[in-house]
Design a protein around this nucleic acid. Sequence first.
DNA 1: TATTTTGAGAACTGGCGGTTCTCTGCCTGT
DNA 2: ACAGGCAGAGAACCGCCAGTTCTCAAAATA
Lengths: 205, 205
Amino acid sequence: MTTPAGEPGEAVDHRKGPRRRGEVLQAAILDATLAELAEVGYWRMTMQSVATRARTSKASLYKRWPNRAEMVVAALRHRGGGPMAVPDTGSLRGDVLAVLRRGADSLNGLFGEAARGLMAENLTNPEDTANLRAQMFTSRDKLMREILERAAARGEIPAEAVRPPVIGFAPALVDHHFIIYGAPVPDEVLTGIVDDLLLPLLTRR
Amino acid sequence: MTTPAGEPGEAVDHRKGPRRRGEVLQAAILDATLAELAEVGYWRMTMQSVATRARTSKASLYKRWPNRAEMVVAALRHRGGGPMAVPDTGSLRGDVLAVLRRGADSLNGLFGEAARGLMAENLTNPEDTANLRAQMFTSRDKLMREILERAAARGEIPAEAVRPPVIGFAPALVDHHFIIYGAPVPDEVLTGIVDDLLLPLLTRR
DNA sequence: TATTTTGAGAACTGGCGGTTCTCTGCCTGT
DNA sequence: ACAGGCAGAGAACCGCCAGTTCTCAAAATA
């Protein structure tokens, strides 16, 4: 969130003034990307607007990333917010809700704005973004799996209930709600998924 | 600006063929839209390409619909394919699978191509398309509800299990798969949803 | 026949993605 | 210390498409 020179200031002609390079410039570009994303949203953000805000040129952007989508992905990664810690509330319900709430919170903010744009881009040319897609879901699935296995170890649910479709469907439904109805995803949706679907399914006998 | 062609300037009038109007023209445009949709897909279809294929002009398209999305919706409606009949296979599993398969088949074809494009458009400006969205889901939910209630009447499942989250989540998961992984949606995904999630959830005791 | 409506066709505006070209500041090797 | 080269700045440029507007003529109407 540093946003280097802040907002004001007229354009510094870096042909004369200090010229940034390498990491410094890269960071400035990514910060500008995040700022644009937050300020005008994915769809009003153009390569030119990012370049201008970072006080650099489009060419410098394209030297680093082949298109807007990859630049946005890099910006999100740059911001940090790595894989979330596995919650441990002591109960399956608490753990799952923590994961879903954290996911929903992300979608309600900057990440959601980006995700919305990237998803549309993905719908436009599905083949170009297969790896991005995979990468987005594996960490989440691993998280859910861990939670469920711990619940099984505690005896809260039968171990054989932890199967692939069960692992992924709760977050998928949150995604779906976000895609179809947009942000914010109400908390009732999350509790509904957990209490009406996931828990009944797992604790059946 | 200006450039009102002050002078006649020798117009090339090779518009000699019989000129269509009204409904005939409208139908030709919608057919051309469907053809383009099938041939090059939503994203390579341009207003110009549709106009050219229909042997008309962009102006005639914009006279009828404000943008590509609405034109595509009109084209799909023009093609027919109204609400599907409620399946009655005698078993809950059969009925639900019939609904899901029919939905998946739609997504695998022309409708899916259009839906992909419209969804991306929807992600772009969510507020402009709220009604379209609602219209798409209500009929499907009604269908599922009917199937579940019939199963409850047969005694296959407890009547109190038929609650809103349960009604909608199976088709939502099919959507999600389509959105994330594209078409075609494998049949194993459908049977997985039914056998690993929906049926265990409904028939638990 | 005279008039009105509507379609055809093309030019035009405006914007954006992406590329390329030139100029020049900054770094590095010697 | 200096030369050479790498890399960034800035702008021009290409292609593409959405959407608009203008003119002319064909079909409908009177």
